[in-house]
Design a protein around this nucleic acid. Structure first.
Lengths: 241, 241
DNA sequence: CTAATAGTGTCTGTTAGACACTATATA
DNA sequence: TATATAGTGTCTAACAGACACTATTAG
């Protein structure tokens, strides 16, 4: 695989390079990940992360966006690079290195895609369980499932990453609709961290401290009516631009 | 995107895959990075990060260790994966994707390698300056230098990463000899963070809190004699195994 | 009214920085 | 002695969790 640019770069074999995307959401009080059912070997009929080969003259980010748009039918979703997986045996077909990315989307938007696409798209939302030890497992309608390739490791890495950056990032808001109650935000944090957080303190902190990008939470004056006392809806301040 | 088992995987071109290593150290009160002088085009005579192609049946970690051992003459140094750089124009020779790693080593050990190898090895230690804005620049003996390829971006990413994890990691100890004074540790933190830290509080925290791996700092009873009051030497507790 | 959820006030322990203080070596 | 560096004690502010309290809706 010698390049014809000024000089040959090297005579060694080159790997196939792919991007796999861990699309996380919070649905019914649980972290879930989008998987696709494979139709061919290897791992035919297994569920795997959506992914695709990196094309020449394309960046990894662009490939991740392409995967999200084409395979998950989610244009306009940003992905962040997670880790590059290179175990030689990770793909039985040969030498395939995968740059894992992760992305966050509100369950409402994902549900729309799933029902719109119907079942023919073979898109599934698997629930993620995280042991206190950090071990991760997946379940579909209560049944534990084993994803293909090394994709369980990739998902575990994504969970670890989002837990680590939750506090100083806007991650929670990427998982929520544009307007939300403070309890919604708290529940997102609790689900991701896998433990309860202090209500009074959490609310104070969210309202007093601006987000990493400088924006604050502002009350909309609107209320979410439920069976009991309505909760006020908040939104992120507009971008200062 | 044909995926017939077992081969071929895809008919698209595949990229060259390399590993570049950001080897950081603290020397004379400054963060420094190990660079090598290139002898051929492109960027002939420029300084660049040590790196190498990933071979088939090798992991990225193994490649990073190989680069450290062969190019920097530092066997037994561990590298951590940093970020994968994929800008199509980053290498004028063609499509080269690089998985950047970073590693930490005490200046004493690096100095030994540099003097031992002599200047024929073309290894250089460049000082890293970090603006409050986060912008990074390199200097060699006071002269600002521009490394080849996108390696300045890679170094900036490494600085950002080590700043972020300094507090909860053992990073400082990888940059120090086995025995050190508490001031040594404080100075490492100050250089990396680019700001002073509180002496009394820093010492208390270092002595009271175990490291992430559970080990504590223990006094050796030995003292480093200088021009004034000697400072006690500490070391990391032995591994519990 | 009660039940249930929304939201607040107050206490307490921990962490961090400021800053002044003591301690001990060399010269 | 002076001086520079090593190391500590104390105050204060910010932060986080515990927990009880008030507030407002549906029914």
């Amino acid at each position: 695989m010698v390049k014809n640019a000024p000089l040959p770069i090297s005579s060694f074999p080159t790997p196939h390079l792919t991007v796999d995307v861990v699309l996380l959401t919070i649905d019914q009080g649980a972290m879930k990940v989008l998987l696709m059912r494979r139709t061919c070997e290897p791992f035919a009929d297994h569920l795997v992360l959506p992914g695709g080969f990196v094309r020449e003259h394309q960046t990894l980010d662009a490939t991740a966006r392409w995967v999200l748009a084409e395979k998950a039918r989610l244009p306009d979703v940003e992905a962040e690079q997670l880790y590059t997986f290179s175990e030689p045996a990770r793909d039985p077909r040969g030498w395939v290195v995968s740059v894992a990315h992760f992305a966050l989307v509100p369950a409402s938007r994902l549900r729309a895609v799933l029902t719109d696409a119907g079942e023919d798209a073979d898109l599934q939302l698997a629930a993620i369980s995280v042991e206190p030890s950090g071990e991760v497992s997946l379940a579909l309608e209560g049944e534990v499932i084993e994803p293909g390739f090394d994709h369980l490791s990739i998902i575990a890495t994504a969970v670890e990453r989002i837990r680590g950056k939750l506090d100083w990032s806007m991650a929670a808001f990427a998982l929520l609709p544009p307007e939300f109650t403070l309890y919604d935000v708290q529940r997102v944090h609790e689900v991701i961290l896998g433990r309860p957080v202090n209500k009074a303190h959490f609310r104070k902190r969210m309202l007093e401290r601006p987000m990493p990008d400088g924006r604050r939470l502002i009350a909309t004056g609107k209320f979410q009516r439920g069976h009991h006392r309505p909760a006020e809806l908040y939104k992120l301040e507009e971008h200062a631009a």
